[in-house]
Design a protein around this nucleic acid. Sequence first.
RNA 1: GCGAGAGUGGCGGAAUUGGUAGACGCGCCAGAUUUAGGAUCUGGUGUCCCGUGGCGUGGGGGUUCGAGUCCCCCCUCUCGCACCA
Length: 852
Amino acid sequence: MEKQYAPGHIEQKWQQAWQQRQSFRATEDVSREKYYLLEMFPYPSGRIHMGHVRNYAIGDVVARYKRMRGYNVLHPMGWDAFGMPAENAAIEHGTHPGKWTYENIDSMRAQLKRLGLSYDWQREFATCDAEYSHWEQFIFLKMLEKGLAYKKSSSVNWCPDCRTVLANEQVEEGCCWRCNNLVEAKELEQWFFKITDYADELLDGTEQLTGWPERVLAMQRNWIGRSYGCEIEFPVLDSDATLKVFTTRPDTLFGATFMSLAPEHPMVSALVTPAQRAKVDSFLQTVASQDKLARTSGDLEKLGVFTGSYSSNPATGDRIPIFLANFVLMEYGTGAVMAVPAHDQRDFEFARKYSLPIRVVIQPQGETFHPEQMPEAWTGQGLLVNSGAFDGIDNDTAKENIAAYLDQRQEGRKTINYRLRDWGVSRQRYWGTPIPIIYCDDCGALPVPERDLPVLLPEDVELTGEGGSPLARHQAFLAVACPGCGKPARRESDTFDTFVESSWYFARYACPDYSAGPLDRHAVNHWLPVDQYIGGIEHAVMHLLYARFFTKVLRDLGLLDVDEPFTNLLTQGMVCMETQRCPEHGWLYPEQVKDSTCSECGAAVEFGRTEKMSKSKKNVVDPNLLIDRYGADTARLFSLFAAPPEKDLEWNEQGVEGCSRFLGRIWRAVGDNLELISGCGPLGPVEGAAADLRRKTHQTIKKVSEDIDGRFHFNTAIASVMELVNAVYAFQPGEQDAPVLREALETVVRLLAPFVPHLCEELWETLGHQAGVEAPGWPTWDEAALKTSELTLVVQVNGKVRGKVSVAAHADNQTLEAAALADANVQRFTEGKQIRKVICVPGRLVNIVVSG
RNA sequence: GCGAGAGUGGCGGAAUUGGUAGACGCGCCAGAUUUAGGAUCUGGUGUCCCGUGGCGUGGGGGUUCGAGUCCCCCCUCUCGCACCA
C-alpha cells in the first residue's frame, strides 16, 4: 500500500473494474424490491459544470446506498440532446448540429465517467436518436387521434432573437428565458397539446405528491390557477351581440357600473362608434407601443377609452358604458370584465379616473359606505345592499344565490376558469423532432402514416441563423406525396419544443431498446414510477408539469399504468461562488486572482456577493480541473459535505482541501494500522476504551443510516464518520484491540462507500476482501454495542446546567435524584432553598426546581 | 399584494419527538515532529475584566420545571407568482 493517498490511478482502476464487472447493470428481478433513481438528464453542452457534479453526486450516494441495502436499483443516464445551442454552434462554426451534439455527448460521457457515477450505461440514449424521434412522433399521432393535439392560429410569444415561438412557461418577465430579449406577440398557426384537459387532475394530484417539496407544488398550483366563478352574459344595446365575462364575484353583480374589455378583444371594432373611432385608435396605438412587460406589471397607469357602446347590467337593467382598458388581459377569462368599482381596486381607480359611477353593494354589518368618500375599494366580506331581492344576505351565500338566479334566467352559469393555457409545442427551428404532419391542398393537414415514421431531419441543411426555420426552405424535405390522395403535398416544417422529449424520457429508460412501440408496458410498469427524482428547482413548473401531463396522457393511451411519474422529488440548490472583479480587467476567474489582487495588473480585487456560478461573471470552477487536482472522490465529497442538498452550496477552495485532507486521514488510518489488524482474530467481549470505540462505531452506523435514508442529510452523515475517524486516531490500541480497531476501520470504509467509492473500494481490497465493498451490503448496528453500563447525566437547577453525574444506565428516578442532589456544585445552588420539584428525564437530565 | 422558505460563532453549517446550543469542517491561536514546510499529529477557539459566574440562536411578549425548537406580534432576507377580474 502506498504511503500517500494518490487518487489518480485508484480512481481509474476502479472505474475500469466496475465497467468490466458490469456492476451497475439493472435487470428486472422480482426477487428484490425495485428502486428507480433518476437525476434530470443534462443538455450535452460539451462540458460538465459544478451543478452537474452536485446533482449527480447526490444521486449516486442514493443509488449506491440503496444498492447496498439490497434494492434492485435502476440508475440510468442519457442526453437531452435537441435544442438551440447546437444550432447556434452550427451557425458560428459551420458544423452540423448533429455532429456537434454527438461529439459533445462523447466528451461529456467521459467526464461523467471520471466522477465514478454508478450508471447503467447500457440504457443510455440521446433524444435526437432516430428511434427516440420515431416513438415521440408515434405518441404525437396517438394524441392527435384522441384530440389531445390540435392546431390553431393564435397570438404566440415570439422571440425575435431566437426566431421562434416560446411557451408561456418560457417567458420570464416578458423576456425570453434563453436569450433574455423582449418577447413579441405574433399571430401564427401552431400545434398545441391539450394540457388544459388535465388541469383538474394535475391540480388535484398535487395533494397526493407528499414526497415533493411544498414550494414546487405551490408553484404548480399557482401556475394552473383554478378559480371558481361565473360566466355572465351582458347584452350589447342596439345590437344582437352579447359580451361574456368571467367573474369570481357574482355577489357584486348589482354593483357593475361599466364594462372593461381587453384592447385585443375581437368585438372591439364592432363596438366602436364613429364618434369614438379616433380616440379608440389613438388608445390602441398607445397600448401597442407598450411592451408586454409593462402591460402586465402592477404599477402600470390604468388607461382606458370609451367605445361609444353600452351594455345593460342583467341584474339591474341599468345602461352601462363599455370601455377598453389596458389592464384587461385577453389571455385570462374571456378578455372582458364586468367592472365593480366599489369592490375591486382596479375598477375603483379606473372609475375615479374616468368619473364613472360607484355603486356599493356589500357592506360589513353596521357600516355604511359612501361611494364619494371611499378611499379604496372594499374587497372584504359583508352583507348585500342595493341588490334587490338579495339585500341582507352575506356575500358568500349571495355568490351561490346570484349564480342560481342567473342560471335560471339563462344569463349566466357557474364555471371554472384556469390560468393554465394549452401547451404550444411548435418551434420554427431545425434541431428538434420534426412534427409528423403533411399538408395537402385538397385533404388538409394529415398525419404521416405510422409506417413512414420516423420523419428524420435532413442532413444537408444550411444554417444561417436568418429568415426563420431552415426546414421551411429545404425543398427536398418539404416535398412529399399526400398520404390521402397522392398528389404533391408539403411537410410540416416546425419541430417540437424540446420539453416534449424530456416529458417521457424517464419511461423510455425502462425499455431503451424496445422496437415495437414507444414503451414496453411490462418493463415500464416494473420500473415506474421513479422512486426518487433529483434536479434543479428551475424546472419546478415547466418540465415537472409537462412530465406529469405526459404521464397521464401515456396512461390514457394505454402505454403505461401509473398516474404520477415521480414519487419523491429532491430539488437541489445552486452552486454559488463569490464574484471577483478587477477595476481594470472586469470579472476575473479564480485562477486570475492571487492574494486578493489581479494577476494581470496587481490591482486590489473587489469581492462581490456570492452568486450562482456563471460564465458571464467568470465565477466558475471547471470540475475537470478539480478532478485533476484532487480526484473525483474529493470533488464528490465536497459537494455533499459543504451544505445540505436542497440549499445553495457556496464554493470554497479551502473547504475542498479539507475534504481532500480527510480522505488522506482515512488512508493513513488504514495504512498505519494495517499490520496490527491483518489476520486478527474474531471480535470477543470488550471493555474500557475498546468498548467506547466499538460503541462509537455502532452509533455511527446508526446515525449515517438514518441520515441517508429518506432524510438525505449527507453533510451530517459525513460529519459523523469524521467523528469516528477522530475516535480511531484517539484510540491507542494494544495487541488485543486489533478486532475492535478493524471493525471501526472497516465501518468507516463501508459507510463512506456511497460517497467516495473509489477510495473505499481500494481500502476494502487493501483490508483483504476479494469482493467489492458493496458486496456485503450496508452495515447493520448492534443494539447491544450501543449500550453502556454508566451514563453521564446533566443536572440542572431551575433549568440551568449546574453539574454532571455518572449513574448506572438502568438507575431508577430515585437514584438519579439522589445522585443529582449529592453533586457539590448543585448543592451550592440548592442550599437553603426549598426543593419544589425534581424532573428526571431518563438518559438525559435531572432538573431540580427550587424556590426561596 | 399572494404563495413558499430562511434568519444560530469570523465562515459553511449541527441540534429526528421541547431536554447540555454551536456537532463536523474551514479559518485562526498554541504546541509536537521536522533541515524546512503551505505536510502530519496534539490541544485551544460564542461572548463578557479570571470562573464552579453572567450573557447568548433577528427583535418583543407568552406557554413550560426547561424554548433555537411551541403560540402571538414585529423586523430583515431569499425564491416563485403577480392588474388573473
